[in-house]
Design a protein around this nucleic acid. Structure first.
Lengths: 157, 157
DNA sequence: CCCATATCGTTCGTGTACGTACGATGGCCA
DNA sequence: TGGCCATCGTACGTACACGAACGATATGGG
């Protein structure tokens, strides 16, 4: 045993508390979603093929690869990101030369985003690893459980 | 008719790419976990009973309420948070007078954390709302699906 | 045609999340 | 017992996440 920290743990003192009858934080859906998301992000980071690309950057690039050109706001809606969050994601992608932008000729409020040639090249390379990342994330589950999990998550998004 | 610019969405151009046959970002487990976690956090924020308490702060306080006194590092392991993340969470809880700390008399590296009286009062109030938050998050699912989701998430954490 | 209202993108503030580096301390063993 | 290595907490940098406020622009109704 290497660490052996905190050899004697205090005993949980609840179980007798009147307000917390069998409420365990580890069994709450919000807690489990946070932990599962943490693990999925960690697997993504090592498996997607470029440690500098984050899950949200990847999602954005994949969508831009599908649609060619999108306004920042619409892209945010398609990938489920707040416009304030989107702003930072897009700024970093532009700084790295993966995304380009031009004013929308028909609406001066909008900016149209698109992948650069380098962005296209990169996302097509990363897309090869995408399935393996998903597979690794759901490795502890059987094929049926994997399908079921995706179905259940789709319902609560 | 109205301006009509930017009203027509470009058609997704993939589906012919050899590397991305039927890979949809919306069906990937990492993407769904991110979206589901977003929604769970939003529900928590309005339902837990104090808009200034975040999910991670809540988890930390619940654990401190169970164990009375814990080192910062051990608390982080119990609630699944990096020590660097834990540092910020604890600092904010201390600034609000919800958590107190003292040096561990047996190990000068450690700090022992505990809830203040106000922290105990608050967490016991919030714990009343905890079950309702979880229920609301899983509302789109049947009772059986809810059990199944928790089980599947537990396996991939 | 003009104004109320909505949308778009930006900025600021707060908070989670984690890698890395750091200094202090503790445990182990040669 | 002295040195090596692990652990603890902190600090810094980067990135997601979102509410709120803001200015510019667009749209629809009176």
């Amino acid at each position: 045993m290497r660490g052996n920290v905190a050899k004697k743990l205090q005993e949980p003192k609840s179980a007798s508390s009147p307000t917390s009858r069998s409420y365990r934080i580890e069994e709450q859906v919000g807690y489990l979603l946070r932990r599962a998301h943490q693990r999925a992000s960690a697997i993504f980071q090592v498996g997607i093929g470029d440690p500098n690309i984050t899950p949200t950057q990847y999602s954005s690039m994949v969508k831009l690869n599908e649609y060619t050109e999108l306004s920042q706001n619409l892209l945010g809606r398609l990938v489920g990101m707040d416009k304030a969050t989107m702003q930072g994601v897009v700024r970093r992608l532009k700084e790295r030369g993966l995304v380009d932008s031009r004013p929308d000729p028909g609406d001066a409020r909008r900016t149209l985003l698109s992948l650069t040639t380098e962005g296209q090249r990169l996302v097509n390379k990363l897309l090869i690893n995408g399935p393996a990342v998903s597979r690794e994330t759901m490795k502890p589950l059987t094929a049926q459980e994997q399908r079921h999990l995706l179905e259940l998550l789709s319902k609560i998004v």
